[in-house]
């Protein structure tokens, strides 16, 4: 392929990048890759305590695309909101608060980490919900582990409902779209009931797996070395 075609590839990929970024949710971080910085999970009632987040949006013609996130690294709870999601004829305050787990247990497993309440209120203190089902909010919660991957459930005041959950990357974070605010928590799949305690995470489980992979890697490297030497000798 000539350098000219390489430039065409660069041009096409730059346009593709711009388009992909356009359709990603508002507030997505500029992350292509890289090592993630993740502090230990802060559990409600422990030390350090988990953080809350509040952001007030002044009255405007249209609610702006925005994000609200708690201050941990990475945030333990965040919400991404599209333009026009809330009636912004008066000021709107969006709040994320860690709350005690309700007595009701999720049907699909055990609560993992904290329960977070997501709310939006107008200047009169009236609770707001997204203006239409097409204007869902993106709720992102940090779990304690990615394996098994937790589900994010929503609590409607009576019972928990599992939502379709996607891996959002750094620090065991997971994402759902929801047409309603309310209380959300990560749920570890398995036996229903109970709360999974926070663990420090990290460590190297399955030494045998790691050892096996190292042996496999050494075999691949040895064969590659041998091929390269033969190639060098043939030149």
């Amino acid at each position: 392929m000539t350098a000219r075609r390489g430039w065409v590839v660069i041009a096409v990929s730059t346009v593709a990048l711009a388009l992909v970024w356009r359709v990603l949710p508002a507030g997505s971080p500029p992350i292509y890759d890289g090592q993630c910085i993740a502090n230990p999970y802060a559990i409600l009632g422990g030390s350090p305590a988990p953080l809350s987040a509040t952001k007030t949006f002044a009255a405007a013609g249209e609610f702006p695309p925005s994000e609200v996130l708690t201050g941990e690294t990475p945030p333990q709870a965040q919400v991404l909101i599209e333009a026009g999601t809330f009636d912004n004829s008066t000021a709107v305050t969006v709040t994320i608060t860690p709350v005690r787990a309700p007595p009701s247990k999720p049907p699909n497993g055990a609560l993992e980490g904290n329960v977070y309440r997501f709310s939006a209120v107008n200047a009169a203190g009236t609770e707001l919900e997204p203006a239409s089902p097409s204007l869902a909010v993106f709720v992102i919660l940090r779990g304690l582990t990615s394996s098994p991957a937790p589900t994010i459930d929503r609590f409607n005041g009576t019972s928990w409902t599992p939502l379709s959950t996607l891996n959002a990357g750094c620090g065991n974070t997971f994402e759902v779209t929801s047409t309603q605010l309310g209380e959300f928590a990560a749920v570890r799949p398995g036996a229903a009931g109970g709360t999974t305690p926070a663990t420090s995470g990290g460590g190297i489980p399955g030494v045998a797996i790691v050892g096996g992979l190292v042996v496999l890697l050494l075999i691949v490297v040895a064969v590659l070395f041998s091929l390269d030497r033969r190639r060098g000798a043939a030149r």
Binding site: Q35, C36, C170, G202, P205, V210, V214, V220
Partner: peptide, 16 residues
């Protein structure tokens, strides 16, 4: 194999 090694050695939070 290198990626699998990263996943196994870094579990439960490989990216971190």
């Amino acid at each position: 194999v290198a990626a699998a090694l990263r996943a196994a050695a870094g579990a439960p939070d490989t990216a971190a």
